[in-house]
Amino acid sequence: MLDLPRLAAWAAQRQSVLEGGFNGRTNKLADGCYSFWQGALFPLLRALPLDALTPQQGASLSLVWA
């Protein structure tokens, strides 16, 4: 099963604070085409019920798999 809260956290962190564009992975520069590949993920996530995106009690949103 997908870890949806973590997916949402990861996707949100792909948006560069300075430029506003998205990158494809950590430590990469923003690339215009990820405006769709990452940006269009949010309308899909928004279509899910809110509790599907809410982390379980005690769950980590860390991007490092522990």
């Binding site: 949402a8 996707a11 564009g21 405006s35």
Partner: peptide, 18 residues
């Protein structure tokens, strides 16, 4: 307003930089 990302900042990036 969408909370998960900043859609207006993304638009600004596309229009200005791309």
């Amino acid at each position: 307003a969408p909370r998960m990302y900043n859609a207006l900042a993304l638009q600004l990036w596309i229009l200005v930089a791309c």
